[in-house]
Design a protein around this nucleic acid. Structure first.
Length: 601
RNA sequence: GCCGACAUAGCUCAAUCGGCAGAGCAGCCGCCUUGUAAGCGGCAGGUUAUGGGUUCGAUUCCCAUUGUCGGCUCCA
């Protein structure tokens, strides 16, 4: 009943208008007060509410320790329980400057407010905002609000400081590094408990942990940071993904191409990568006095394949697909398991089409993309349309065409989408697709991008009905994004319990005693013939141990075999969710497995 | 790259104040022949990430490097 009430109350209310938002904002101020009591010489920056909590940035004389966080949190409880009021006051810029004369970050914010260009988060704004301060206890902060009226509205047992992290002032890496304390705050202790539980759940699904436990992949210091080793079980899943992917592309009139991992400097000059992407590219290798670069993208090669023949308008659309492995320089601090690596394989494709084919081509690639994502169990998909930025290349009329086509296609698709005006790349507008995983986190996978730049640079043409050369439209797309990252997302989505069609081992034969081994092997042969991936657990272990191990390996089907099964030609089926359907004939099991594989469930 | 934390057996983790580096699991050997989440016993396993330094003596203290983690910036 309680839950119903809250969800109904929150349906229409925006987060910014909610009590919880004010609680978190006020908790941030109370934290700042506690920190300044501890470090009177500390400088305060900004402290907004965020999803699930709040943070506040400080410039302090020394690095904070976990013990500091404990004492700050304790002091916060004290302040909250003392019941201080939050009082707002509107003041002039001069008064503000005087008040915050020893707080350089605040002075900078005041200057921004005064000039009317920036709001108190430092974001550009059109309205010249008023300058307001909030005071609680002995602490006064420059702040737009809103806050709770009294600290007693904050439940002292529903807040927790989480961690300290470095953060640049105003997010600018050229500016000072501050210490950011992250905290979380809720209306009730149960909600805090629930939040901490969700964090635990996310931790359990961490693809780095599961990757180790299920022996799927590793990243080795001696091999190099950000370079992935796919172990047999991970590789098997990748192969299954790739096989499905290939078949779907064949069914949808793609041509496969293969291209090299390096190309001459001139290629990357022509494509423009050495101009606008050099920071992400590795140093060149010298081959007989010529410079070659490791490829950060596949497109230039595909463009050359297109250019290798004269193309007729009758040939279009042309769709070239490649699982192309690219290498990009990523700064050491950003590497993260499979999600952010230095070498990865894109499920890449480039479409070349005539202007009149373009809307249909977008429709196709969008629905194809959805089909692929849904096949992997992602049903909640959100789209983002990014349009022409201020600095762009290409004829504005083409941009207009392309953006209209993208938007109309989105409308037809029935997808929810947001428009990011001016958020496109300089070379073309795009649609990105994000999927929601099993615990509600969003991951960007697909991207569908127009490119007005490269066809121009490589002078791509096709001969039209009029016998004249024309410039084709080019669309660059990746559906899964990168196989590495997609695999990471899959692992977290399924928490390692992959659907049967993707499970590296689909069935474990579990003979109870040695005398059942022959029958187990015989059934295993039968299952292999039926196309199933099966192992026989022939270790001299107890059945219970074998079940436990199969369960921990998240093998979908456990087939227990004892005297009864052997005599009746059956297998005793147990599922990884703990369900125990019991003995069934081998043929029935095969039929059941085939059905689940076909359904991709 | 930047801020902070961390790096001990294949894995997960101990080791007090600077004084002989330890456990569980996994592995190997043996016994048990088992009915739905770990049977029992034994053996083996280490240049304490790497390289320097301080010290009679360093897993422990200091410096550098590599890598990992949490963020920032960036991003498939």
């Amino acid at each position: 009943m309680f839950i119903l009430e809250v969800s109904m109350a929150n349906v229409k209310e925006k987060y910014e208008d909610s009590l919880l938002y004010r609680i978190r904002h006020s908790a941030a101020h109370i934290m700042a007060q506690a920190v300044l009591e501890k470090f009177p010489e500390g400088k305060v920056a900004i402290g907004p509410p965020i999803e699930d909590g709040f943070y506040y940035d400080f410039d302090l004389p020394r690095a904070l320790t976990p013990e500091d966080l404990e004492s700050i949190e304790k002091r916060m409880r004290g302040i909250i329980q003392s019941g201080v009021n939050f009082e707002k006051k509107v003041i002039s810029a001069d008064e503000a400057k005087k008040l915050f004369h020893d707080q350089p970050f605040k002075l900078e914010l005041i200057a921004g407010l005064e000039s009317g260009e920036l709001d108190d988060d430092g974001n550009p704004t059109d309205v010249k905002p008023e300058i307001s301060i909030y005071t609680q206890g002995g602490f006064t902060d420059l702040c737009r609000g809103p806050h709770v009226e009294n600290s007693r509205q904050i439940n002292p047992t529903a807040i927790k400081l989480m961690n300290v992290a470095g953060a640049y002032w105003r997010g600018d890496e050229k500016r000072p590094m501050l210490q950011r304390i992250y905290g979380t705050a809720w209306s009730k202790p149960d909600e805090l408990k629930d939040y901490l539980w969700r964090l635990e759940e996310a931790k359990k699904r961490d693809h780095r942990k599961i990757g180790q436990e299920l022996d799927l992949f590793s990243i080795n210091e001696e091999v190099g940071a950000g370079l992935v080793l796919w172990h047999p079980k991970g590789a098997r899943i990748r192969k299954l993904i790739e096989d499905f992917w290939s078949q779907e592309h064949i069914n949808n009139d793609y041509d496969f191409v293969y291209t090299p991992h390096i190309g001459k400097a001139q290629l990357w000059e022509t494509s423009g990568h050495l101009g606008f992407y050099k920071d992400n590219m590795y140093s060149p290798v010298d081959i007989e006095g010529q410079q070659y670069f490791l490829k950060p993208m596949n497109c230039p090669f595909h463009l050359h394949i297109y250019k290798n023949s004269l193309r007729s308008y009758r040939d279009l659309p042309i769709r070239y697909a490649e699982e192309g492995t690219v290498y990009r320089y990523e700064r050491s601090g950003v590497l993260h398991g499979l999600m952010r690596v230095r070498g990865f394989t894109q499920d890449d494709a480039h479409h070349f089409c005539r202007p009149d084919q373009m809307p249909a081509e977008i429709d196709f690639v969008l629905s194809f993309s959805l089909h692929i994502l849904r096949s992997f169990g992602f049903s909640e998909i959100h789209a983002y349309l990014s349009t022409r930025p201020e600095k762009s290349v290409g004829d504005p009329a083409m941009w207009e065409d392309a953006e209209t086509a993208l938007q109309e296609s989105l409308d037809r698709s029935g997808l929810d989408y947001d428009v990011d005006r001016g958020g496109g790349a300089f070379y073309g507008p795009k649609i990105d697709l994000k999927v929601k995983d099993a615990i509600g986190r969003e991951w960007q996978l697909s991207t569908i991008q127009f490119d007005f730049n490269e066809p121009e640079r490589f002078d791509l043409t096709y001969i039209g009905e009029d016998g004249q050369p024309h410039r084709p439209y080019m669309i660059h797309r990746a559906l899964l994004g990168s196989l590495e990252r997609f695999f990471g997302v899959l692992i977290e989505h399924y928490a390692g319990a992959f659907p049967v069609w993707l499970a590296p081992v689909q069935a474990a034969m579990i003979p109870i005693a040695d005398r059942h081994l022959d029958y187990a092997r015989q059934v295993a042969q039968e299952l292999k013939k039926a196309g199933l991936r099966v192992i026989v657990d022939d270790r001299p272990e107890r059945m219970n141990a074998k079940i436990r191990d199969a369960q921990n390996q998240k093998i979908p089907y456990m087939l227990v075999i004892g005297d009864k099964e052997q005599e009746s030609g059956q297998v005793a089926l147990r599922l990884r969710n703990g369900e125990n359907p019991g003995p069934i004939p081998v043929a029935d099991f095969i039929a059941r497995a085939h059905a689940e594989i076909a359904a991709k469930s």
